[in-house]
Amino acid sequence: MKLSILDQSPVSSGTTAQQALKESMKLAKTGEELGYSRYWVAEHHDIAGLSCPAPEVMLGYIGAHTESIRIGAGAVLLPHYKPYRIAETYNLLASLFPKRIDIGIGRAPGGSAEATMALSDNYLEQVRKMPESFDDLLHFLQSDFPSDHLFSKVSASPQPEVLPEVWVLGTSEKSALLAAEKGTAYAFGHFMSNNDGPEIAETYKRNFSRSSVVSKPQLILAVTVVCAETTEQAEEIALSSMLWSIQVKAGEGEKGVPTVEEAKRYSFSAEEQQKLEKMKKKMIIGNPKIVKQKLIDLKRLYLADEIMIITITHHYKERLQSYKLIAEEILSH
C-alpha cells in the first residue's frame, strides 16, 4: 500500500506557530525516513490554530531539508490567484527539487469571508471561472497555448526538466468531473466530506479523459488517522483533536489543540456530542493492526491508488509516533 502525509501545520496549546512549522519540517523528514511517498502541506488563512497560509514557502523550507519524498500543496486555492503566478512558483520549486513537486489545486476559500475579501477580489466569480483558470494553469505549465492566444509567448520561467504533478483536490462530484475532464490526478478528501465518496471516486474514473498530464486515472484518498500502541490510547489522543475541531468551527480554537487532560475535563453539550460521534465515523482510530485493516478496507472501497493520512494530536511526538506505527505495520512488510 502506498501511503502519504497531509499536514495542516496545527499549533498545539502552549506552543507557537514557529514551533508548529518546525514540527512540520520534522514530520516531512520522518515521513521520508519511514517510506511515505509524499508530503503535502495545506493552505489556510486566519484559521485559529493553523499556521500555514503559504504552502510554497513551506515547500522551499521542507525541500531543502529532505532528499527524495515528493512534496506539494494540498491545496493551492486557485480562485485567490492568477494561474501564471502559480505556474512560475511551482516551476521554480520543480527546478530546485527535480521530480519531487506536486501541485494540488482546490477551490475552497480556506478561511472566513473577511479573510477571503482581504486576500482576493470577486472570489465567487473566480470560483465560477475556475475551469478556465485551471486550463490556463495547465497551458502555462506545459507551454502549449495555441499560437493565437494572448499568452502564447509568455513563459512560466524557469522551465524545469520535469514538470510538477498536477492534482485536483475536492470532496464533490464537481471536483471529480473537473479532474476527469482535464485528465489530471484526483485527491478526494474523505476526512472532510459528508458526500458519497466511493460514488464520487467512481464518477472521476468513469469520466476520465486521457491527457498529456496523466495517461490513466490516479486517485488519492485523504483520511484522518490516529494510531497508538493500544486502541484505548489512540481514542484518548484523538479526543483532543476532535474537541479542537469543534472549537475551531465555533470560532473558539485560538488556543490551539488542547491536551488530552483538557479534553477529558471538557463538558460536551448534546449538540457537541453529536458532532463528536459524526467525526469518529469519518476517522480511523486504533492500534496498528486495526488501523491497517481499516485502511485496507477503505482503499478497496474507493479503489484508491494511494492513502494520504492526516493526523492531528496535541503532542507532536504522538503525531510522529502515529505515523511511525502505521509505517512499521504497513510499509515495512
Rank of each mutant, 00 (worst) to 15 (best):
A327M: 01
V291C: 07
F268R: 05
I220W: 01
S155N: 10
P109T: 11
G170W: 01
S13I: 04
H315Q: 12
D7V: 06
T30Q: 15
T30K: 14
E232R: 07
G110C: 06
I312T: 10
T259D: 01
D121Q: 11
L3P: 02
S147W: 00
F97E: 12
L93T: 08
K22G: 03
A201W: 00
L331T: 07
H314C: 12
L78W: 03
Y204T: 04
K99Y: 02
L96K: 07
Y266L: 08
L3F: 00
K289H: 14
E67C: 08
L3K: 07
V260Y: 00
R319T: 09
L34S: 11
C227W: 00
R128I: 11
S120D: 03
S51N: 01
T313N: 04
E272G: 15
D136P: 14
L137W: 06
R206W: 01
L298F: 04
E181N: 08
Q233V: 07
E236L: 04
H314E: 04
V166T: 08
D102F: 01
D46I: 10
G72A: 10
F191L: 07
H315L: 06
E328N: 05
L59R: 05
K99L: 11
S241L: 02
I5D: 04
G74V: 09
V257C: 00
V154I: 13
I71A: 10
Q247G: 04
K26R: 15
A327H: 03
P160W: 02
M1F: 09
F134Q: 04
M308G: 09
I307L: 14
F268M: 07
S193E: 14
K264F: 02
R70K: 15
I312D: 01
G110V: 05
P258K: 10
E33W: 09
Y316I: 08
P131M: 05
L295W: 01
M25Q: 10
E328P: 07
R210Y: 03
V223W: 01
E262L: 09
K99C: 04
K294R: 09
S155Q: 10
T224N: 03
G14T: 12
F145V: 09
K255S: 11
E173L: 14
K153S: 12
S209G: 08
Y316E: 05
L59T: 04
S269M: 14
Y90F: 13
L138N: 06
T231W: 01
E181L: 03
D136R: 15
I326N: 08
K264C: 07
A238S: 11
T16R: 00
A42E: 06
L221Y: 04
S332P: 03
F134C: 12
